[in-house]
């Protein structure tokens, strides 16, 4: 997947001692050594593979950054301009490339990013059984699911967990119609190389979660809606609407603890109104996807540590 848009010299160096599955992210900063994060450990990238010496590392140039973005767009920058305005591109296979540079704005509205100075390439993972520990806790005895909010800091496995939850419904033969509001195209992984998410899901990508959740409600009559990284304006209202319409919601949000999320003003209505019945907190404590705790709607603990 990385080979599709990384220059050959770079992908050869990365794959010299690694496989796609081990890499968490690659960071390229203009005039700085390229950094590769493998199994949460950070290395520099040299022409002979990963190393810890920045002096022998490959340095990111302007041409390299531009070339990666152009290739990642499939030689079609016009097709990613809406994504670029939000600061990222999603490549087929669910790889998200965060982009930094000089913003070109018109009347306060972001038009594009030029003179790209940094790229953060996040490699997604498909881990079958990643959500095994929590799946049973989301199901009520009579096959009704609890509305659930997954909480974790960046890179702790929220999206991998959501992806596997969708698969687990199929695997355990729960024939729910699942609708995935996949704003960044990361959960499903694109059209060419989609992840195996089972048989019962529909998805819409590259549109705001608020719009896609309501779109899904109108068009696909879902039993469950799954979405990633809520917290923007309108997300809470859309989720409230879904839940009051009888649709189950499993969502994720950035945060290190339940306490963090309780302080988030954009989610206060959802939390105070007890729209979510289960809160699941993940961390990187013992590796990506460490289950820290499961909590009820009144924030009392079912499993794990303190708030």
């Amino acid at each position: 997947m990385l080979k599709d848009f990384l220059p050959k010299a770079l992908s050869d160096a990365i794959y010299l001692k690694n496989t796609d599955g081990d890499i968490n992210e690659i960071r390229l900063r203009l005039s700085c050594p390229i950094v590769v994060c493998v199994n949460l450990k950070t290395y520099f990238l040299s022409s002979s593979g990963l190393c810890s010496n920045p002096n022998v590392a490959i340095y990111a140039t302007r041409e390299l950054l531009d070339d990666i973005v152009f290739k990642a767009s499939d030689y079609s920058m016009y097709s990613i301009s809406d994504q670029l305005k939000q600061g990222f591109i999603t490549v087929d296979g669910g790889i998200r490339i965060g982009v930094c540079g000089e913003v070109v704005a018109d009347c306060g509205e972001i038009k594009t990013i030029k003179n790209i100075s940094s790229l953060c390439i996040r490699v997604p993972h498909e881990i079958k059984g990643a959500s095994k520990q929590i799946f049973s806790k989301l199901i009520n005895g009579d096959r009704v699911i609890y509305n659930t909010l997954l909480i974790s800091p960046a890179g702790a496995g929220k999206t991998t967990m959501l992806r596997d939850l969708v698969y687990q419904f199929s695997y355990h033969n729960y024939p729910y119609n699942i609708f995935i509001a996949d704003e960044r195209g990361e959960i499903v992984g694109g059209n060419k190389n989609p992840f195996n998410l089972g048989y019962f899901y529909d998805s819409i990508s590259f549109v705001s979660k608020q719009k896609s959740m309501l779109f899904g409600l109108r068009s696909m009559s879902p039993d469950i809606v799954i979405t990633d990284e809520i917290g923007e304006n309108g997300d809470a209202e859309a989720i409230q609407h879904l839940i009051t319409c009888g649709v189950g919601v499993i969502a994720s949000v950035h945060g290190a603890s339940l306490d963090d999320v309780r302080k988030n003003p954009r989610l206060s209505t959802l939390l105070q109104g007890k729209y979510f019945q289960r809160y699941i907190v993940l961390s990187k404590e013992n590796g990506v996807g460490t289950l820290e705790g499961i909590y009820r709607e009144d924030f009392s603990r079912i499993y794990g540590g303190t708030l």
């Binding site: 152009f70 767009s73 079609s76 920058m77 016009y78 301009s81 594009t112």
Partner: peptide, 10 residues
């Protein structure tokens, strides 16, 4: 220049 511009410019 093909593919290097935004939609309008392209």
């Amino acid at each position: 220049g093909l593919g290097m511009y935004d939609q309008t410019t392209q």
